[in-house]
């Protein structure tokens, strides 16, 4: 497997996802849309596994490689949410976001092959990256869901606002709780790994600082929801948290405060 084949896998995956999104609206049954979307996800998985075998290391070393995982997980989570709650629109949103990240890989590759330096040769490397990418994808999906509920609830239904139901808010909370659990796994694994590699649990590396801010942000959301605040405040907090997450994932690479000093630059 090589990056030269990526365009074909990306095209096949995108086509399957688009077909799945359309089928979600056209078909009365859920399985045609879910199957088509899952086929796209499998195409991504085949490419990822193929790269893993070819590179003789996990494809998690470069920004381009992490985007593969993001698209893979996001499409998978989209299908799970669709099958669980029958939201037709979620497949369109997850397709849109997954395709954007595939397109970024096509137009701004950042995929050059880098060897695995000694610090990355650890049993923590693969779980640390995978749980983070899963958390990022899940929290991306919940942001889409929150924005949808926000826009939907702002429309006037007759003379009253169409408020989100308890069940909808609970789904939001559940997704954030799962996403936050995975952020916690990623952070704790990172700390345990850092202690083995460098002798410090935490060194306030710029990436770590933003990871801490993101983790705290979603923790704030969970605490805010205990008081059953206005859903719109909760949605606004989720959007801010999502921005923190983007900063943590790749925004930090462009910050003057991080340039040249972060051990997480990739």
């Amino acid at each position: 497997m090589s990056w030269s084949l990526f365009v074909w896998f990306a095209a096949a995956a995108a086509l399957c996802w688009v077909v799945g999104s359309v089928l979600a609206f056209v078909s009365k049954k859920t399985w045609p849309a879910a199957s088509a979307s899952l086929l796209g996800t499998v195409a991504m998985l085949v490419f990822i596994v193929g790269m893993w075998v070819t590179l003789k290391r996990p494809p998690m070393r470069t920004m381009g490689e992490t985007r593969l995982w993001y698209s893979f997980f996001l499409s998978l989570i989209g299908v799970v949410i669709y099958l669980s709650w029958r939201y037709k629109w979620i497949l369109s949103f997850s397709t849109m976001m997954s395709v954007v990240f595939l397109a970024v890989n096509l137009f701004k590759p950042e995929i050059h092959n880098r060897p695995l330096m000694p610090a990355l040769q650890s049993p923590w490397f693969v779980p640390h990256v995978i749980v983070y990418m899963f958390a990022y994808a899940l929290l991306g999906a919940v942001t889409l869901y929150a924005v949808y509920l926000w826009i939907h609830s702002s429309r006037l239904a007759g003379r009253h606002r169409a408020e989100p139901t308890l069940e909808e808010m609970k789904r939001c909370d559940v997704l954030v709780r799962v996403g936050w659990s995975f952020l916690t796994f990623g952070m704790v694994m990172g700390a345990l790994w850092a202690k083995e590699a460098w002798g410090d649990w935490w060194s306030w590396d710029p990436k770590e600082t933003w990871a801490f801010a993101t983790w705290l942000g979603y923790l704030g959301y969970l605490h805010l929801r205990q008081r059953r605040q206005d859903p719109r405040t909760a949605f606004a907090v989720l959007v801010v948290c999502f921005l923190l997450l983007q900063m943590c994932w790749y925004g930090v690479n462009y910050l003057p405060s991080a340039r040249g000093i972060s051990v997480h630059t990739y």
């Binding site: 600082t209 933003w210 801010a213 805010l224 923190l244």
Partner: peptide, 18 residues
């Protein structure tokens, strides 16, 4: 919530200021 939000805010400043 207030303490989490305040520490988050300072963490953001922490991340922005060299």
């Amino acid at each position: 919530f207030a303490s989490i939000a305040s520490v988050t805010l300072l963490s953001v400043i922490f991340g922005l200021v060299p």
